[in-house]
Structures are given as C-alpha cells and as structure tokens.
Design a binder for these strands. Structure first.
Lengths: 214, 214
DNA sequence: CGAAGCACTTAACACTGTTAAGGAGGTGGG
DNA sequence: CCCACCTCCTTAACAGTGTTAAGTGCTTCG
C-alpha cells in the first residue's frame, strides 16, 4: 500500500475500529504499512495532527446545506443525526473527538450552515449559538453512549432471572433505587434519548425565530 | 501528609489543576507524597480507578433535590449549571469525565433526582431521559469549552503559519467566511451558549409535562 | 556527474502504567 | 520472648509509548 497522507488517515481509522483508541499506537499503525514508526513523522508532525485529521475524515461533508425545499429544522436534525451516527459508528469515535480540538478544516462547512440558517431568518450569532449547542450535545451524547454503558443501562443488565440467586458480588442493592429501576427502560434506547434532546434544542431555536418573526 | 485514599484523590485533583491531565502521572503524583509510584497501587488497583474517584469527587453532592418551594425546572437548571461549573473549574475536567465511565456512586444522587422529578409529575422514564440528555449536554459543552477555544473564537486570533506539504489552503482567508466572522461574538461567551441549550432541553421537558397534564 | 531532496531506516531518549519481590514496622498470640 | 501476620512502602524491572537525531538508499534535475 502506498504511504500517503490520506491513506494513512484511512488506515488509522480502520485500525481504530479494530483495536480501539488506547491500542492505536504509531508503531502499530506503521506495521500496517510494513514501515517503521518514525516514517509516519514525515507525513504528520505528531500523533495529535494525525488524530485531528482522522476526526475531520469522520465528519460528514454532506448535508452542509438543506436539500431543495427542505425546511431548516428538518435539515438540521437530519444532519445532526448523521454526525452523531458517524461518531458512534467508529469505535471510540467520541473519545477521539473529545481529545481533538477542531481545526479550521471545519470552517467551510460551518460557513455554509450559517448561511443556510441565515436564509431561514436567523441572525449569524443566533445560528452559531444553536449550532454550537447542538455540536456539544452530539459529542456529549456519543461519549456517554460509548462509555461502555450508562449507569442506568448497566443496572438493566442484571438479568431478571438472576433474582433468586440474590445479589451477585459487586452489584449494589437495586431495591434501594426504585425510581431508577423503573426508569431503566428509557436508557435502553440511546437513539431515542439523543433524539429527545436534539429535538428540544431545535425547538428552542424555532421558538426564538418565531418570537422575533412577530 | 498522610497517604490515605481521600488524600490521594484530593491531591490528584490539585495536581490536575496544576499540570493538566497529560502530565498527571503516577510518578508525579507519588512525588507529592514523597513516595514511590508503586505505593499508590496499594490504595488503587490502577490509574483508571483513581481517575474515576477524582470525577466523583468533582461531581456536586448538593442540590440533589429542589430547595423547599423551588420549582423543578429552576432547580434542574441550577443544578446543571453547578455541575457544568465544577467541570470547567478544574483543568481538563471535561476530558477527565470523557474517559471515565460513571460508577455506581452516582446511583443515590440519580435516584433522588428521579424522585424529585417524579413529584413534579414526570414518569420515571421521562425524567431519566431528560436527565441523560442534560448530562450529555453538560459534558459535551464543558469539553468544547476547554478544547482550547471554539473554532469561531479561534478564527478571531489566528497567528498560525502555513503548512509544509498540506493542502493549498494556506493562510485562512477570513473574508471567505463572512457569516462566521459576523457570528464570532456568540462564541465569545460560552456560558451564554451553554445556558441557551440547557434552557432548551428543560423547556422540552416542560412541554412534555404540560401536554400530558391536559 | 554531482547536488538536492524525498522517503525511509536504525538507534536512542525520556517517559508511561504496572507487576513482582522484598523489607521495615507494628500488632497479636502462644 | 519470639514468631507469625498484616500493612504499607521500596527497589528493580518489563513492556510499551511518542518523539528526535542521524544516516541511507533512491529519484530527479541542473
């Protein structure tokens, strides 16, 4: 395989899916190209730069603008879902996003989105504020999702059938937490939780727009 | 200083503020106690366990329940702000939260909150869904905030030099991004951005409650 | 033919988390 | 009194990390 910038990025992403972020080392990545680790430093000045570009490669370039005739809120939700999907599609994708500061490669996409929202009636500051809130929410949700499992979901993992066996060691006494037990179902479907908050933020933006429209 | 579990956690947090997450090593922490690094492994089975407890120590134990007479939404917002504040108060606090899965130490707090929301009329699943969304939003926002700076704010400075063999982008020409430039002010005040999304999610919960109340 | 630059190698540095084995200090029991 | 035991820490070491410095073939060009 040829050793070029984009090839390295792609292979690194594939390797990330395979071994996870912790085991993704320069030496391990170099091995994928039958090359010594320092060779990578000719193409990237350090590991962080490589990670940055991996994240950019994961971020959707599509949907920077609504489809023809699509309402701004439908488009925003669709795009956010897509971005969320990209993050959780790759192993440790959110953790990667967490330790990577955004590069200026995102500027063009951001600009297009601001323009689209501007066409819908938003002032640039309003639009950016909404986009930032959504962006934070997306990475936070993806993070919580891949955090092995959310605490409530972990509680749900106790098989109902194991009840007579008593509490397995390490498992706390769930009867202390009746509300939590009753609520566990909500955490079972992380996509629903994500949509819930996403819709709320978009609704907030819509309210702002309507109020100002009057 | 005595070498006890809680003392280690507290010192580790202080050290985190001082040197940052990347430089927070077991050897460095041990030095704070005039002790060799492996001594810490008598108190914690590994570094991750220590990190977990650091995060718990940062999470607010107060406000698990509304003040007397306080409306549920005011309480929820206040508590969320508090938690957000705790995260950004410590250096790399959000990054720490990002690489730490929640432990069951959070169960009691969660249970109290579910109970409080239940008293306000929420079904357990609704309440948990809202809390999870808010929690995601908090860590995501804190993360984005400490990510040095938001992309737009970064655009405001830009003392960068050109890349060697990179894309022909060269120096970012900000005039290409008029909307972004116009919106930069919104990113200047991250607290306002945070409040914006937080209010939106809480408003979503309120709407759900009112709809069901009719 | 020689210079220049690219793309890589080998060797090494300064770290990291973590384990194994052992030793000092105190406590309790026979 | 002495030996065993437990707690808490030490020293030594392992396997691995990101990263830099110096050197080596290879291609391309003047």
């Amino acid at each position: 395989m040829k050793l070029e910038r984009q090839a390295i990025i792609d292979t690194a992403i594939a390797l990330l899916d395979e071994v996870g972020l912790d085991k993704l080392s320069m030496r391990r990545l170099a091995k994928e190209f039958d090359v010594q680790a320092p060779a990578l430093y000719w193409h990237f000045k350090n590991k962080q730069e490589l990670l940055d570009h991996m994240l950019v490669a994961m971020s959707p370039a599509e949907l920077r603008v609504p489809r023809p005739g699509q309402a701004w809120d439908d488009w925003l939700i669709e795009r956010s879902r897509l971005q969320y999907g990209r993050l959780i599609k790759h192993r440790d994708g959110a953790r990667l996003a967490a330790q990577t500061k955004p590069t200026e490669d995102l500027f063009p996409g951001l600009e297009s989105m601001l323009e689209a929202l501007g066409a819908a009636g938003f002032a640039p500051e309003e639009a950016l504020r909404g986009l930032l809130a959504i962006s934070s929410y997306i990475t936070g949700s993806a993070l919580e999702r891949e955090g092995a499992r959310s605490p409530a979901a972990e509680a749900a993992e106790t098989p109902e059938t194991a009840e007579p066996a008593g509490q397995p060691d390490g498992m706390p006494d769930m009867s202390q937490y009746p509300n939590l037990v009753a609520a566990v179902g909500a955490a079972r479907d992380p996509d629903a939780v994500f949509d819930y908050g996403l819709n709320a933020i978009v609704a907030g933006m819509r309210a702002e727009l309507e109020k100002r429209g009057k």
